[in-house]
Write a protein that binds this DNA or RNA. Structure first.
Lengths: 233, 233
DNA sequence: CGGCAATTTGACTATCCTCAACAGGGGTGG
DNA sequence: CCACCCCTGTTGAGGATAGTCAAATTGCCG
């Protein structure tokens, strides 16, 4: 029995395209690895030497200008795929935001395996197409939305992505939701193309307007999802 | 002999992965179509009914906010692939910027064909991964760069993409380059996340500083590529 | 030549950034 | 256990960049 049988993302990651024996072969060329917050798995500009599946945790994909400004260009969650198969250099770094566990492969090994398993390539293609769609939608936010719209869009997206983690009983307040963000204020700013001060001001504005509550630095309670969605533009 | 044999992008588009008989089969389910500037092939939000290869011309991929602000999220050139295979709705419209010729397929037919031809899916995967890289790089521009940096980056990218079209003899001015942009000022603004006025002011500033020349509305001569690259941030 | 749309220019404004000071809170060491 | 410290986040004041609104200009096409 391979370790994959116990993998929590077995049926959601690209591995879902493989049967038992194929999975064993893939398992043979991969290994799991833990990453601590702030630790990087891949650096911007280096040539692509490894790819991975996310098993647990949240990681950011980010690029920097020469003078140090950062833009987070993607955020990956369990079952997501990271890295750049089939040559080239990776255009962005990959860094853990939380404690994370990933299943890493040497890119060369993975490339060879993928070419022999079209069903895996198909899954990877579907995933990549979805990621491209999501990324392009984010460009509208970066290019055309105001700070208020960016913040609202961000909180709406986080609600969708983080799902029902720690949901309150939805009786008297059906759409009240509780989020624990995997981001610092600076990281939120780097996702939205804003400064940390602007993000902070938007948070306090939303709190003063009764749309959200901020019980702690990393937690947000959404009191009025409709108002938030309306502000998202 | 299928019409593909005469196709100018035969060896660059995803079709390059197919042999003669496979190509004939693909040809049987596709047809070429001409599009005039401003005409749309795909609309934002509709479910994905067709995909295509670009044979000639330039097209934009764009999304809009509800209140009409537009962001161009991609620009495609000959040999590029457009559309969203494998279900879903298209998140952006596709509109011709110039006279264009495309080779269109019903999405259902294309999906079925692709699943039976792993080499085609592989080519499509490589292309999609490259497009994702390019898109993410553009996010850094949208989120973190100033208007001046955006304009310079845009002109540098256009120089690379449009290649040697109409190059002057590079003797006395080795890096002087002539571009004919496929964009109006408004469209440049929609690519860069700026307003048309800001784009116009940046053009005149670059001209006054002797970095570029503007012989006509759609033409740019780059007089000092080094200065431009330096400004790109 | 006239009409129309695209672009440029100008004046003014708003949003967001910058710089700076302050507050909070979680952890450590006394 | 408490005090302190450091890091993160918040708040404030002022300024710069890019947006808005309006008018003038260009150049394209009949």
């Amino acid at each position: 029995m391979s370790t994959c049988d116990l993998c929590v993302v077995r049926n959601r990651a690209i591995c879902a395209s493989l049967n038992a024996s194929e999975l064993e072969a893939l398992n043979a060329i991969g290994r799991t690895r833990k990453i601590t917050p702030g630790e990087s798995l891949i650096w911007e500009g280096e040539d692509s030497v490894l790819v991975a599946n996310v098993i647990e945790g949240v990681l950011k994909l980010s690029t920097n200008t020469e003078d140090g400004r950062e833009q987070i260009v993607g955020v990956v969650y369990p079952s997501d795929f990271i890295g750049r198969p089939f040559g080239g250099t990776s255009g962005h770094g990959v860094t853990a935001l939380t404690e994370a566990k990933v299943c890493v492969f040497s890119r060369r090994d993975f490339d060879a395996f993928a070419r022999e398993h079209p069903s895996l390539e198909h899954k990877l293609l579907e995933r990549t197409l979805g990621e491209l769609d999501r990324t392009r939608r984010w460009m509208l936010l970066l290019g055309r939305k105001s700070a208020a719209e960016k913040m609202a869009s961000f909180l709406v997206e986080m609600t969708e992505r983080l799902g029902g983690s720690g949901c309150k009983i939805p009786l008297d307040a059906p759409q009240e939701r509780h989020l624990t963000l995997p981001f610092s204020r600076q990281q939120i700013a780097d996702v939205l193309g804003l400064t940390i001060e602007t993000v902070s001001r938007q948070f306090t504005r939303l709190r003063n307007e009764g749309i959200i509550d901020l019980p702690s630095r990393r937690d947000v309670i959404i009191r009025d999802m409709d108002a938030l969605a309306a502000e998202a533009g």
